[in-house]
């Protein structure tokens, strides 16, 4: 859980950085998207790097979801009779919403891949595949639809929550937070990554919505 989670943290950080290319304009953004396919050539074949990443992420996803399912099942078996009344004392909301938040993120990722990667669905024109337009057009068209932006922003909120608890939780599970200080640092890192990654991702749809990116 922790290892695959850390992998996702690294991926989302790079992904978010790449997205910010949107602010450099259509050409630069499309160049970046194309460059990803040529990354590592000639040692790697065309799209080689992309596929290694995709396979790696898929394995991590399977591991992450499997661990989550195992933990959830163990938890539900550990307490089959629920409390009539239960209050939580000091735990963060993010820590208690990992399961539902995670499931929501999974649904979102499926749509996100259909939207931008495998299906290339342009919600504005209804076109799919190559007809949906170049990556930049597809992005701007998508976020011009207000409810798509809302979906993406809600997903980023969920991602922020997930990262907030996930970051500190991963360091704790890996045994790096044996003191009060290191525990505090891990929690601060959780805040930082949640704000930077979820915030960074949100900049693009927000900018489209407010017409900063056209």
């Amino acid at each position: 859980m922790a290892v695959s989670g850390l992998l996702f943290i690294a991926f989302t950080l790079v992904h978010m950085y790449g997205n910010l290319k949107a602010f450099s304009g259509q050409e630069k953004f499309n160049d970046y998207a194309h460059h990803l396919r040529e990354f590592g050539e000639p040692i790697l074949p065309y799209e080689g790097f992309l596929w290694i990443t995709r396979v790696g992420l898929l394995v991590a996803l399977v591991a992450h979801v499997t661990s989550a399912v195992i933990l959830a099942r163990r938890a539900s078996r550990a307490r089959t009779t629920k409390y009539q009344y239960k209050k939580n004392k000091h735990s963060a909301l993010s820590s208690r919403t990992m399961r539902w938040g995670g499931a929501a993120l999974l649904l979102f990722i499926i749509w996100h891949l259909v939207n931008f990667s495998f299906g290339k669905v342009n919600p504005q024109t209804g076109e799919t595949g190559a007809a949906a337009g170049d990556p930049y057009t597809l992005m701007v068209d998508t976020f011009d639809v207000w409810w798509m932006t809302v979906i993406y922003l809600v997903a980023m909120l969920a991602l922020g929550f997930h990262l907030h608890h996930g970051t500190w939780s991963a360091t704790q599970t890996l045994g790096y937070t044996n003191t009060a200080t290191s525990r505090q640092r891990a929690k601060q890192a959780g805040w930082l990554l949640a704000i930077v990654i979820a915030g960074g991702f949100s900049l693009v749809p927000l900018s489209v919505m407010f017409g900063i990116i056209e």
């Binding site: 163990r74 820590s95 500190w168 939780s169 704790q172 599970t173």
Partner: peptide, 19 residues
């Protein structure tokens, strides 16, 4: 159950055993 580092345990601990 397995631990997911929620931290309710440490807040409930009467002896304040830390996480």
């Amino acid at each position: 159950g397995g631990c997911t580092n929620i931290g309710e345990c440490a807040s409930a601990c009467p002896k304040e055993i830390p996480l």
